[in-house]
Write a protein that binds this DNA or RNA. Sequence first.
DNA 1: CCAACTATGGGAATCGTTATCATTCTCGGA
DNA 2: TCCGAGAATGATAACGATTCCCATAGTTGG
Lengths: 145, 145
Amino acid sequence: MAESDLHVIVGARLRGAGQRYTSKRRALVEILEDARQPLSIPDILRGRSGLAQSSVYRNLAALEHAHVVRRVVTGEDFARFELAEDLTEHHHHLVCSNCGTVQDVMIPQRLERSMEHALDEIAEGSGFTAVSHRLDLIGSCKRCS
Amino acid sequence: MAESDLHVIVGARLRGAGQRYTSKRRALVEILEDARQPLSIPDILRGRSGLAQSSVYRNLAALEHAHVVRRVVTGEDFARFELAEDLTEHHHHLVCSNCGTVQDVMIPQRLERSMEHALDEIAEGSGFTAVSHRLDLIGSCKRCS
DNA sequence: CCAACTATGGGAATCGTTATCATTCTCGGA
DNA sequence: TCCGAGAATGATAACGATTCCCATAGTTGG
């Protein structure tokens, strides 16, 4: 996806939610785009967003509500955020249970497809309407093991 | 697994961690065993554990450390707990993004196996040592949809 | 029965996250 | 370009789940 396309799409989604696409929010989106893994608020504040902590929280909430970013739950005591999957690519996570870092990973198309198929059946059988799935590997990252 | 076996195993694991298996902790284990889905602390306090809130937290931490219970992260603002998988059965979760409930579900052995195989390869290729995996379906439960 | 140690409960402390509010900025209309 | 309404920002207070602390009660081994 071209750089400009991303901002056009994000802008459209924000306006659709009655929000503006300010320079601060653009900076936030760019920081998330450059990262190769979901970022925590401390990570983002360390970056050069030029945003106050309260604004980072508020803007991430706004972006999440506009389906631009997704909150990733990790078990650490703070949340992590990444761009929504339809702005990047469908992927999963390698979660290090020692240091808490999360690394993006993709799995073979074939497996992804057979998994989705099976999950649809399961959901249906349980009267559950599945919207998405989340597959994380828990273990030790290269640095910790 | 017979009822008594469970308590024998739990007792052994706790003693192995230098802890006692008190009646309060036994009550906690039984509440988790009877539940068909991971329970939150409020859920547990509503039950008849007879435990103070601080003791529930402390005991769940002790049980988690002894590998008797597992903390389930859901994105709600409180955690949920379930018995460790080797005390029950390997399963996954249907997470309702509306009301927050989590329902246990099992997936076909065939898929489970091909998934594990693929995940091992992926982890290895990334220098990651996988210990376990987590597969959740996100969507709307029967009651909410 | 004692002594040492662990568990318990209540409440204070912690810390990530949210809400509040005064100020600043932005966009559209005149 | 200038104005005004509404949105965004930043500093700080409030909130709530979880953890910590400590005095008391219970348990275990000798």
